[in-house]
Nucleic acid binder design. Sequence first.
DNA 1: GGCTAAGCGAGACGGTACGTCAGGTCTTATT
DNA 2: AATAAGACCTGACGTACCGTCTCGCTTAGCC
Lengths: 207, 207, 207, 207
Amino acid sequence: MAEESQGVAVNERGGRGRGRRPADEVRADVLRTVGDLLLAEGVADLTFERVARLSGVSKTTLYRWWPSKGALALDGYFHAVEPTLAFPDTGDVRADVLAQLRAFAHVMTQTPGGKVLAELIGQSQTDADLAASFRALYSSERRRLAAARLQRAQEVGQIRADVDTRVLIDQLWGAVYHRLLIPDEPVTDEFLCALVNNLMDGISETL
Amino acid sequence: MAEESQGVAVNERGGRGRGRRPADEVRADVLRTVGDLLLAEGVADLTFERVARLSGVSKTTLYRWWPSKGALALDGYFHAVEPTLAFPDTGDVRADVLAQLRAFAHVMTQTPGGKVLAELIGQSQTDADLAASFRALYSSERRRLAAARLQRAQEVGQIRADVDTRVLIDQLWGAVYHRLLIPDEPVTDEFLCALVNNLMDGISETL
Amino acid sequence: MAEESQGVAVNERGGRGRGRRPADEVRADVLRTVGDLLLAEGVADLTFERVARLSGVSKTTLYRWWPSKGALALDGYFHAVEPTLAFPDTGDVRADVLAQLRAFAHVMTQTPGGKVLAELIGQSQTDADLAASFRALYSSERRRLAAARLQRAQEVGQIRADVDTRVLIDQLWGAVYHRLLIPDEPVTDEFLCALVNNLMDGISETL
Amino acid sequence: MAEESQGVAVNERGGRGRGRRPADEVRADVLRTVGDLLLAEGVADLTFERVARLSGVSKTTLYRWWPSKGALALDGYFHAVEPTLAFPDTGDVRADVLAQLRAFAHVMTQTPGGKVLAELIGQSQTDADLAASFRALYSSERRRLAAARLQRAQEVGQIRADVDTRVLIDQLWGAVYHRLLIPDEPVTDEFLCALVNNLMDGISETL
DNA sequence: GGCTAAGCGAGACGGTACGTCAGGTCTTATT
DNA sequence: AATAAGACCTGACGTACCGTCTCGCTTAGCC
């Protein structure tokens, strides 16, 4: 009933047969579709139903491999957006941190991936699986890289020894996230500079 | 389920008749139900359908008054949780800010309302109406209050004049939100102290 | 948003609005579709999904009114096929019974409804609800009519007084059903004549 | 789920390896499972999927040997229920027929196999393969045996020569099937006796 | 004090998506 | 070479909720 053309079984109506396909091929189809959907329409319009329809992969298979919508979204996101985790180390921690903040802010505000990331963080507030995956796959690694750079600065005497460098991350990148997630104020370059200056130099009036 | 007892027409089957009811009464029933649902189950399980069923208010009426789920959730939240916006002013900005951060952190981590607030922020990433309402009803007012206190500190010379006080809010409360929304690290009292100390004193090694 | 043309709400895309429609209209659409499907393709290809798709009535509504596929099929069947329950009474029971058997056999073997009826009886073997509905709506009434005619014959002395007329129904129409449901042998006119003759006259060799 | 214990290779995870097994062993496992399922839950709950799961035989193998669910069910049924086709011949056809009807009615109403047989007849209304197999394996043989006994009675002058004995089968066993498949009336011993008496003696009032 | 229309409860309606199950087909690895 | 395991697409299942709409009732607010 199925006609062999070359290697891939194809039935007479032009559709693919129903049998098993290589897992990698299926996975690639799904992730491509999810990535496109995420960037084009955001997390809210991502459904298993649409992914199945658009990717040509069955719902059964989607549920087999991705237990929740969050898992699917996260996987698709990282497939579509190769996250730049690189952290410069020129020896000048102040300049390096500012550079990284600028790169980060640029991605978040100037690329479609930024919106998606904010939505993923949003969904993770009501989806524990997504929250866990997000931390495991993304945020904790970013924290680790930032902390490593800051600790090197501490070791070479650019940051005081009694400072907990983990807190600095919240006061720099966390501050940016704050303006992204609750956008009462915009993320400007002045803002990024102020973040670094305030923290490095302190804000107290010194006599 | 709850039976009204004074003055309301009740038919023989125990249900209320379907005539018009005072708007205030209807509104109160709805907000009470929404508040209960939010605190008990969170934003994800809040649906018009359930609110209608549990409150005895028809879906028609809900849609008449609240255009979206976010609007309903926000209204119910502020009805259930009287938000403490008060900001102390003892003259010592360092102590006042720490006190407010502690109060804030306590509400967010120790009360059910904290979870709900995080979920509302989450939902607002994919619901522009909710985002706008959230800023209008809550976050911008909180920013304003904090900014006012910090500006007084600036005026009395506790904070350097060249500092943009709006940025400080992101580096203090924004840092807390960071740990709440992306919980790689916990919100501890040491963390809150470090936030204030880092920012007030600076983190640079001074020679 | 909806444009009123005359009486019926119609939206700008030409489709019908989503609000409530008169129940009779909905019901008529469903039964017409089910009837068509049954006669065209039989019971096996009748699904809620297809009925919803073809009738323009939502699955929710179908499930609201028809608890099972059997209920839907039965309702659609009796809407499509006006069952001829009439039983002639010319005074000659032998002729009347044969006439009715011929009419019955004709419907069952020469019309599409016959196949459907057999399939409904088939499905009722594994669907208790359908079985109950089938008896209530169809078979018990047919038995009643046949029994009434036979009892009149008994009263006028054409059938012996000690005969249980209910058994005769199984030996006449039941015998036809047997050849319909387990078609080892065909239902011919000779067969129908033999049924009546055998039973009226007995098959024993009389000395 | 069931663990094979003698002679079969078992891997460390408890499952059997996937190599070839003797066809007889495979077939026996399947038929046992199908028989159990049929008697325990009926035809409706018999699926290839469950049989594969419960028997430890792969779907591939099931489809290789049994082309349809009906074929599988029928095979399993006859494996579980050794059908009693024996027909007594004491010389008295009236007594023999009644005895066989009683045995048949007992099996159909008092044993789990009776329900299954009714369900198989039901399924055969929408499954042409099953219908054909059922006739080939079961019903035509039963007709043949009954016809043989009745023809002997005809030859020895207990049944009139002009009677088509095939019709009698429908008026006796067919009448019982009628009450089994469309149970408006019960199958009682009085019913069975009446079947034989009505047919042998005729029901006409004789002057 | 009666009339009327605005607002209400009830819930049907067409949809979309959910998460699951079974049907058949096909691939891969095993024996 | 036949088998086990199981991935794969298809299509149907029955349910939840969405936002819209009809209907009948009741009461508030106007005469």
